Amino acid sequence: MNIYISGSLAYDRIMDFPGKFSDHILPDKIHILNVCFTVNGMVEKFGGTAGNVAYSLSLLGERPVVLATIGKDYGTYFEWLRKNGLPLDGIKVIEDEFTAGAYITTDKADNQITGFNPGAMKHQTEYEFHAKDAGDSLCLIAPGNLRDMIRYAASCRERGIQYICDPGQSLTQWEGKTLRDWMDGSMALISNDYELELIMKMTGMDKKKLLGLTETVITTVGEKGSVVSTMHSEDFICAAKATDVVDPTGAGDAYRAGLLKGLATGKDILTSARMGAVTAAYAIEKYGTQEHRFSYEIFLDRYRENFGEL
Protein backbone atom coordinates (compact mmCIF):
# COMPACT_ATOMS: atom_id res chain seq x y z
CA MET A 1 0.00 0.00 0.00
CA ASN A 2 1.23 3.49 -0.87
CA ILE A 3 1.54 5.81 2.13
CA TYR A 4 1.32 9.59 1.77
CA ILE A 5 2.22 12.00 4.56
CA SER A 6 0.95 15.54 4.09
CA GLY A 7 2.33 18.04 6.57
CA SER A 8 5.40 20.17 7.24
CA LEU A 9 9.16 19.98 7.01
CA ALA A 10 11.01 22.20 9.46
CA TYR A 11 14.31 22.85 11.16
CA ASP A 12 14.18 23.04 14.96
CA ARG A 13 16.91 25.37 16.26
CA ILE A 14 17.32 24.76 19.97
CA MET A 15 19.19 27.12 22.29
CA ASP A 16 19.91 27.16 26.03
CA PHE A 17 20.04 30.36 28.08
CA PRO A 18 22.35 29.96 31.12
CA GLY A 19 20.08 31.91 33.45
CA LYS A 20 16.42 32.67 34.11
CA PHE A 21 14.33 34.85 31.83
CA SER A 22 12.57 36.29 34.89
CA ASP A 23 15.83 37.84 36.15
CA HIS A 24 15.99 40.05 33.06
CA ILE A 25 12.36 41.03 32.56
CA LEU A 26 11.11 44.01 34.57
CA PRO A 27 7.37 43.59 35.30
CA ASP A 28 6.75 47.36 35.41
CA LYS A 29 8.42 47.79 32.00
CA ILE A 30 6.70 44.89 30.21
CA HIS A 31 4.92 47.34 27.88
CA ILE A 32 8.29 48.39 26.40
CA LEU A 33 10.03 45.02 26.50
CA ASN A 34 13.43 45.05 24.79
CA VAL A 35 15.61 42.15 25.93
CA CYS A 36 18.48 40.19 24.39
CA PHE A 37 19.32 36.75 25.78
CA THR A 38 22.84 35.52 24.94
CA VAL A 39 22.70 31.74 24.61
CA ASN A 40 25.35 29.04 25.06
CA GLY A 41 25.00 27.82 21.48
CA MET A 42 22.53 26.33 19.06
CA VAL A 43 21.68 22.79 17.98
CA GLU A 44 19.79 22.18 14.75
CA LYS A 45 17.41 19.23 14.55
CA PHE A 46 15.21 17.94 11.74
CA GLY A 47 11.50 18.36 12.41
CA GLY A 48 8.08 19.07 10.98
CA THR A 49 5.05 16.80 11.15
CA ALA A 50 5.58 15.11 7.78
CA GLY A 51 9.31 14.72 8.31
CA ASN A 52 8.89 13.19 11.77
CA VAL A 53 6.24 10.67 10.73
CA ALA A 54 8.07 9.70 7.55
CA TYR A 55 11.34 9.20 9.47
CA SER A 56 9.81 6.67 11.88
CA LEU A 57 8.07 4.93 8.99
CA SER A 58 11.43 4.52 7.27
CA LEU A 59 12.70 2.69 10.38
CA LEU A 60 9.67 0.41 10.07
CA GLY A 61 10.67 -0.47 6.50
CA GLU A 62 8.30 1.87 4.63
CA ARG A 63 9.02 4.55 2.01
CA PRO A 64 6.16 7.03 2.36
CA VAL A 65 5.78 9.96 -0.02
CA VAL A 66 6.19 13.25 1.85
CA LEU A 67 3.82 15.99 0.63
CA ALA A 68 5.31 19.25 1.89
CA THR A 69 7.13 22.41 0.89
CA ILE A 70 10.71 23.25 1.78
CA GLY A 71 12.80 26.39 1.38
CA LYS A 72 16.01 27.37 -0.37
CA ASP A 73 18.01 25.87 2.54
CA TYR A 74 16.74 22.40 1.59
CA GLY A 75 20.14 20.78 1.01
CA THR A 76 20.79 19.39 4.50
CA TYR A 77 17.24 18.07 4.91
CA PHE A 78 17.22 16.43 1.47
CA GLU A 79 20.50 14.72 2.29
CA TRP A 80 18.95 13.38 5.53
CA LEU A 81 15.84 12.12 3.74
CA ARG A 82 17.93 10.36 1.10
CA LYS A 83 20.08 8.78 3.83
CA ASN A 84 16.92 7.28 5.29
CA GLY A 85 15.64 6.01 1.94
CA LEU A 86 12.78 8.50 1.66
CA PRO A 87 11.63 9.78 -1.76
CA LEU A 88 11.69 13.49 -2.56
CA ASP A 89 9.19 13.63 -5.44
CA GLY A 90 6.30 14.93 -3.29
CA ILE A 91 8.32 17.84 -1.88
CA LYS A 92 8.11 21.27 -3.53
CA VAL A 93 11.08 23.64 -3.19
CA ILE A 94 10.17 27.32 -2.65
CA GLU A 95 13.28 29.13 -3.84
CA ASP A 96 12.50 32.54 -2.31
CA GLU A 97 11.66 31.32 1.20
CA PHE A 98 13.50 29.60 4.02
CA THR A 99 12.30 26.24 5.32
CA ALA A 100 9.87 26.54 8.21
CA GLY A 101 11.82 26.94 11.42
CA ALA A 102 11.21 26.92 15.15
CA TYR A 103 13.69 28.88 17.26
CA ILE A 104 13.39 27.57 20.81
CA THR A 105 15.26 29.09 23.76
CA THR A 106 15.05 27.38 27.16
CA ASP A 107 16.24 28.87 30.45
CA LYS A 108 17.49 27.21 33.63
CA ALA A 109 13.94 26.98 34.99
CA ASP A 110 12.75 25.13 31.84
CA ASN A 111 10.79 28.16 30.64
CA GLN A 112 10.73 28.48 26.86
CA ILE A 113 10.49 31.33 24.37
CA THR A 114 9.81 30.15 20.83
CA GLY A 115 9.71 32.01 17.56
CA PHE A 116 8.26 30.19 14.54
CA ASN A 117 8.78 31.19 10.92
CA PRO A 118 6.39 29.29 8.60
CA GLY A 119 8.56 30.20 5.62
CA ALA A 120 7.97 27.77 2.76
CA MET A 121 4.96 26.31 4.59
CA LYS A 122 2.98 29.39 3.53
CA HIS A 123 2.92 27.89 0.03
CA GLN A 124 0.92 24.90 -1.25
CA THR A 125 2.60 21.74 -2.49
CA GLU A 126 0.06 21.28 -5.33
CA TYR A 127 0.80 17.55 -5.56
CA GLU A 128 -1.69 15.50 -7.57
CA PHE A 129 -2.52 11.91 -6.65
CA HIS A 130 -2.34 9.32 -9.43
CA ALA A 131 -5.32 7.33 -10.69
CA LYS A 132 -3.57 4.11 -9.63
CA ASP A 133 -3.68 5.28 -5.99
CA ALA A 134 -7.40 4.62 -5.66
CA GLY A 135 -8.14 1.75 -3.27
CA ASP A 136 -4.48 0.99 -2.60
CA SER A 137 -3.24 4.06 -0.71
CA LEU A 138 -3.41 5.64 2.71
CA CYS A 139 -2.88 9.33 3.44
CA LEU A 140 -2.20 11.06 6.76
CA ILE A 141 -3.16 14.74 6.59
CA ALA A 142 -1.09 16.30 9.38
CA PRO A 143 -0.61 19.99 10.32
CA GLY A 144 0.90 21.97 7.47
CA ASN A 145 -0.40 24.39 4.87
CA LEU A 146 -4.14 24.73 5.59
CA ARG A 147 -5.16 24.91 1.91
CA ASP A 148 -3.21 21.70 1.26
CA MET A 149 -4.94 20.01 4.19
CA ILE A 150 -8.38 20.88 2.81
CA ARG A 151 -7.52 20.04 -0.80
CA TYR A 152 -5.92 16.67 -0.04
CA ALA A 153 -8.98 15.52 1.90
CA ALA A 154 -11.22 16.43 -1.04
CA SER A 155 -8.86 14.70 -3.46
CA CYS A 156 -8.76 11.55 -1.30
CA ARG A 157 -12.55 11.38 -1.19
CA GLU A 158 -12.76 11.90 -4.94
CA ARG A 159 -10.24 9.14 -5.68
CA GLY A 160 -11.32 6.66 -3.02
CA ILE A 161 -8.11 7.00 -0.99
CA GLN A 162 -8.39 6.31 2.74
CA TYR A 163 -7.24 9.28 4.79
CA ILE A 164 -6.65 10.14 8.43
CA CYS A 165 -7.33 13.65 9.78
CA ASP A 166 -4.66 14.95 12.16
CA PRO A 167 -5.38 18.67 12.76
CA GLY A 168 -3.07 19.16 15.78
CA GLN A 169 -1.38 22.56 15.89
CA SER A 170 -3.41 23.81 12.92
CA LEU A 171 -6.67 23.93 14.92
CA THR A 172 -6.45 27.66 15.61
CA GLN A 173 -6.70 28.28 11.83
CA TRP A 174 -9.96 26.39 11.29
CA GLU A 175 -13.59 27.34 11.61
CA GLY A 176 -16.19 24.80 12.66
CA LYS A 177 -18.00 24.04 9.39
CA THR A 178 -14.79 23.67 7.38
CA LEU A 179 -13.39 21.35 10.04
CA ARG A 180 -16.55 19.20 9.95
CA ASP A 181 -16.45 19.02 6.15
CA TRP A 182 -12.76 18.08 6.24
CA MET A 183 -13.36 15.13 8.55
CA ASP A 184 -16.48 13.89 6.73
CA GLY A 185 -15.62 10.61 4.99
CA SER A 186 -12.26 10.10 6.68
CA MET A 187 -10.96 6.79 7.96
CA ALA A 188 -9.98 8.25 11.33
CA LEU A 189 -9.49 11.40 13.37
CA ILE A 190 -6.41 11.42 15.58
CA SER A 191 -5.60 13.99 18.28
CA ASN A 192 -4.59 14.28 21.90
CA ASP A 193 -7.23 14.68 24.59
CA TYR A 194 -6.94 18.48 24.77
CA GLU A 195 -7.22 18.82 21.00
CA LEU A 196 -10.29 16.54 20.98
CA GLU A 197 -12.03 18.83 23.46
CA LEU A 198 -11.21 21.78 21.23
CA ILE A 199 -12.48 19.95 18.12
CA MET A 200 -15.77 19.13 19.84
CA LYS A 201 -16.17 22.75 20.94
CA MET A 202 -15.36 24.12 17.47
CA THR A 203 -17.68 21.73 15.63
CA GLY A 204 -20.46 21.64 18.23
CA MET A 205 -20.30 17.83 18.09
CA ASP A 206 -19.61 15.28 20.82
CA LYS A 207 -17.56 12.15 20.14
CA LYS A 208 -20.60 10.13 19.08
CA LYS A 209 -21.53 12.74 16.48
CA LEU A 210 -17.92 12.95 15.28
CA LEU A 211 -18.16 9.20 14.65
CA GLY A 212 -20.91 10.01 12.19
CA LEU A 213 -18.26 11.81 10.12
CA THR A 214 -15.26 9.52 10.59
CA GLU A 215 -14.99 5.77 11.19
CA THR A 216 -12.66 6.00 14.21
CA VAL A 217 -11.59 8.59 16.77
CA ILE A 218 -8.11 7.94 18.18
CA THR A 219 -7.17 9.97 21.25
CA THR A 220 -3.67 9.95 22.72
CA VAL A 221 -3.46 10.60 26.46
CA GLY A 222 0.26 11.01 27.06
CA GLU A 223 2.04 8.45 29.22
CA LYS A 224 -1.28 6.71 29.92
CA GLY A 225 -1.63 5.48 26.31
CA SER A 226 -4.44 6.04 23.83
CA VAL A 227 -8.16 5.44 23.33
CA VAL A 228 -9.62 3.99 20.11
CA SER A 229 -13.31 4.80 19.70
CA THR A 230 -15.78 3.57 17.07
CA MET A 231 -19.58 3.50 16.92
CA HIS A 232 -19.48 0.01 18.46
CA SER A 233 -16.67 0.10 21.03
CA GLU A 234 -14.14 2.13 22.99
CA ASP A 235 -10.82 0.44 23.70
CA PHE A 236 -7.91 1.62 25.83
CA ILE A 237 -4.39 0.95 24.53
CA CYS A 238 -1.73 1.19 27.23
CA ALA A 239 1.57 2.92 26.54
CA ALA A 240 4.54 0.72 25.71
CA LYS A 241 7.36 0.63 28.26
CA ALA A 242 10.28 2.97 27.60
CA THR A 243 13.75 2.28 28.94
CA ASP A 244 14.17 5.97 29.80
CA VAL A 245 11.95 9.05 29.34
CA VAL A 246 14.26 11.71 27.89
CA ASP A 247 12.04 13.90 25.70
CA PRO A 248 8.32 13.38 24.95
CA THR A 249 8.50 15.74 21.97
CA GLY A 250 7.82 13.78 18.80
CA ALA A 251 6.14 10.83 20.53
CA GLY A 252 2.82 11.68 18.87
CA ASP A 253 4.36 11.69 15.39
CA ALA A 254 6.10 8.37 16.09
CA TYR A 255 2.77 6.92 17.27
CA ARG A 256 1.21 7.94 13.96
CA ALA A 257 4.02 6.19 12.08
CA GLY A 258 3.41 2.90 13.89
CA LEU A 259 -0.33 3.25 13.37
CA LEU A 260 0.15 3.79 9.64
CA LYS A 261 2.55 0.84 9.38
CA GLY A 262 -0.07 -1.41 10.91
CA LEU A 263 -2.91 -0.18 8.69
CA ALA A 264 -0.77 -0.33 5.54
CA THR A 265 0.13 -3.97 6.25
CA GLY A 266 -3.46 -5.06 6.84
CA LYS A 267 -3.56 -5.02 10.65
CA ASP A 268 -6.78 -4.12 12.45
CA ILE A 269 -7.09 -0.70 14.12
CA LEU A 270 -6.35 -1.92 17.67
CA THR A 271 -3.20 -3.81 16.63
CA SER A 272 -2.13 -0.77 14.62
CA ALA A 273 -2.62 1.47 17.66
CA ARG A 274 -0.43 -0.86 19.71
CA MET A 275 2.23 -0.61 17.01
CA GLY A 276 1.93 3.15 17.39
CA ALA A 277 2.48 2.84 21.13
CA VAL A 278 5.69 0.86 20.63
CA THR A 279 7.06 3.32 18.05
CA ALA A 280 6.31 6.22 20.41
CA ALA A 281 8.36 4.54 23.16
CA TYR A 282 11.47 4.71 20.97
CA ALA A 283 10.96 8.43 20.30
CA ILE A 284 10.77 9.48 23.96
CA GLU A 285 14.05 7.72 24.72
CA LYS A 286 16.00 10.30 22.69
CA TYR A 287 16.21 14.09 22.68
CA GLY A 288 14.71 15.33 19.41
CA THR A 289 12.07 14.05 17.03
CA GLN A 290 14.28 12.18 14.54
CA GLU A 291 17.07 10.88 16.76
CA HIS A 292 15.82 7.38 17.65
CA ARG A 293 17.03 4.35 15.70
CA PHE A 294 15.81 0.76 15.55
CA SER A 295 15.36 -2.07 13.08
CA TYR A 296 11.99 -3.64 12.34
CA GLU A 297 13.18 -6.89 13.90
CA ILE A 298 14.00 -5.10 17.16
CA PHE A 299 10.64 -3.35 16.97
CA LEU A 300 8.89 -6.71 16.73
CA ASP A 301 10.75 -7.93 19.82
CA ARG A 302 9.58 -4.92 21.82
CA TYR A 303 6.04 -5.34 20.55
CA ARG A 304 6.05 -8.94 21.85
CA GLU A 305 7.36 -7.80 25.23
CA ASN A 306 4.49 -5.32 25.59
CA PHE A 307 1.56 -6.88 23.75
CA GLY A 308 2.39 -10.44 22.71
CA GLU A 309 2.74 -11.79 19.19
CA LEU A 310 2.03 -9.42 16.33
Rank of each mutant, 00 (worst) to 15 (best):
L88Q: 09
K132R: 13
Y163M: 07
S22L: 07
V39D: 09
S229Q: 07
L259I: 04
G308P: 02
A251S: 13
P27M: 01
D148W: 12
R13H: 14
E197G: 15
D247P: 04
T279L: 04
T203W: 02
L86F: 13
S186K: 02
R304N: 12
R82H: 11
G85T: 11
D148Q: 03
G160L: 06
E234C: 10
C238M: 14
E297Y: 09
I32D: 09
T106E: 13
K132F: 13
G51H: 00
V227K: 11
S155K: 15
D110P: 00
I218F: 01
G144R: 00
P143L: 07
Y103N: 15
G41A: 05
S233L: 04
T125I: 13
R304L: 09
Q169A: 13
D301F: 06
A240H: 03
D166L: 08
G252F: 02
Q173A: 15
R159T: 06
K132M: 13
D96Q: 08
I70M: 11
R13A: 11
E285L: 10
H31A: 09
L60K: 07
I104Y: 08
Y303H: 05
I5E: 00
V65R: 12
G7R: 03
Q112A: 13
I91S: 04
E291I: 12
N192D: 08
G90D: 08
M183F: 05
M183P: 06
A100E: 07
R82F: 11
C165N: 02
I94Y: 05
